[in-house]
Design a protein around this nucleic acid. Structure first.
Lengths: 202, 202
DNA sequence: CTTTTATTATGACAAATGTCATGATATAAT
DNA sequence: ATTATATCATGACATTTGTCATAATAAAAG
């Protein structure tokens, strides 16, 4: 059973490699970037590809498409640190066979087995987000002022400072942020800052 | 009195322009990027340059150096959203004449006047950080594990999730973060994420 | 002129966050 | 062997953060 791993965090590939090898799987190659994925796949013809969804250069989901384009039966399992609605439907529709949280690698070996037997394995945390990801959620567009708040969060300001900056009460700023979190499907201000740096400013 | 403004946030330049023009100053040009700074300076030969310290392409501090290299008496005032120790000493040593927080633009016009009269104007918030910025603070290097925590924060995980990820108690994670904040001179986890995206990953 | 809708605000609340003093344990240095 | 140092943990604590119900106000729509 040949496996290739692709994750831009070497720690992750290393620990996954260890886990899998203990289970008797053969990790034939590791990549650090979506761009390497297809080449490695062609070279090693693995039974399973384990890949991070978001990586520095090329996103895992795009690399998955490349591979599936080359071999539409490729068995790819995507891994993610936190659930990101954007990628779920994309993964399903392009034929990714598995989608798991990195956190629960206890389930990983089992998932690999299942996928090998042509089953599809999406973790519950991810499946539960599908309804949400389905509806085009017209309401997920930020207003001008909300965007301003996002930017200020991404500058590192706290609520009081933001309120002074945009001349609203601190409570209102909290409400604004609460709405932003709902719209963007995030959990806290730190994720807003991350969103800004990974999706808006970049 | 000719002024040029440089900030990658058009809103900022626009509102500054308004404020300054109300005060009878002549905003002859606006730029959005450190790269434009020197060219604009050569072209307009302004009395004052107002510039953001950190911008997307070229940092304001570097653009300031360019200008001062071309005209060592150039009167440059740097603006910043939040105090960043790294740039303070650099600004002083290369001859920047003013350094203010964007927040208090009431002081801006006054500062412009003073700088025009060859005074130097650094805001108290910034001056107060000099002792801190001075000492090489050997202790500001992150350990391997601290860096791991920084990365996890930058992935959007909360303390409990981080603790599960690195097999430590949540309390210990909190202590780790507390240390990281001290070492990096930051205030909260959001600023850690920002630090990651602006200084480590980029 | 009502009725909606948008904007701002408040207060109560739970949860998460960050600080700090303190302590247990193990390893390294003297 | 004793002292130092590093690592991990705990609990108390204040503060910040995010949620939610509710409401005042003004502007827009009917």
């Amino acid at each position: 059973m040949k496996v290739i791993l692709i994750d831009d965090d070497k720690l992750v590939t290393l620990s996954l490699k260890t886990i899998l090898e203990v289970e008797g799987l053969d990790v034939v190659a590791c990549g650090e970037d979506g761009n390497e994925a297809l080449d490695l796949y062609k070279e090693y013809q693995p039974d399973i590809v384990l890949m991070d969804v978001r990586m520095k250069e090329k996103k895992g989901i795009d690399a998955a498409k490349d591979i599936l384009n080359y071999d539409k039966d490729a068995k790819i399992i995507l891994l993610t640190t936190f659930v990101d609605d954007d990628y779920i439907l994309e993964a399903i529709s392009c034929g990714v066979k598995g989608y798991l949280l990195k956190q629960d690698y206890e389930k990983l070996v089992d998932a690999i087995e299942k996928v090998t037997n042509s089953q599809i394995v999406y973790s519950n945390e991810i499946l539960s987000r599908i309804p949400n990801a389905m509806n085009p959620n017209n309401d997920n567009v930020l207003s001008y002022k909300e965007l301003k708040v996002v930017k200020l969060i991404a500058q590192g300001l706290n609520n009081k400072e933001i309120s002074q900056e945009i001349y609203l009460s601190e409570g209102t700023v909290r409400n604004y942020i609460s709405n932003i979190l709902t719209k963007l499907d995030l959990r806290d201000r730190t994720q807003i800052a991350i969103y800004y740096y990974t999706k808006i400013s970049k």
